[in-house]
C-alpha cells in the first residue's frame, strides 16, 4: 500500500504538463484581470472625489 502511494506521488508530482500549466495560467490571468478592473473602478471613484 505504502509503495503504491509513494509511486503515485512520484508519478504525479513534479512540473505538470504544458496543458495543465496553460489552464492554470488562464484561470490566474482571468482572476487577476478582474482584480485589475475592480482596482481601476476604485481608482476612478477616488480620483472623482478629488476632481482628478
Amino acid at each position: 500500500m505504502r509503495d503504491t502511494l509513494s509511486q503515485h506521488a512520484n508519478t504525479f508530482a513534479g512540473i505538470p504538463d504544458i496543458g495543465t500549466r496553460i489552464t492554470l495560467f488562464v484561470v490566474i490571468t482571468f482572476m487577476l484581470i478582474v482584480t485589475i478592473l475592480l482596482v481601476y473602478f476604485k481608482m476612478r471613484e477616488s480620483d472623482d472625489k478629488k476632481g482628478i
Binding site: I22, L24, F25, L32, I36, V39, Y40, M43, S46
Partner: peptide, 20 residues
C-alpha cells in the same frame, strides 16, 4: 491605486513566465 494596477499586471507577466 495606479501602483497596485501595475503590480497586478506584473504578477500576470510573472505567472505567465513561470507557467510557460
Amino acid at each position: 491605486f495606479r501602483d497596485a494596477i501595475a503590480w497586478i499586471a506584473a504578477l500576470i507577466l510573472l505567472f505567465g513566465l513561470c507557467l510557460i
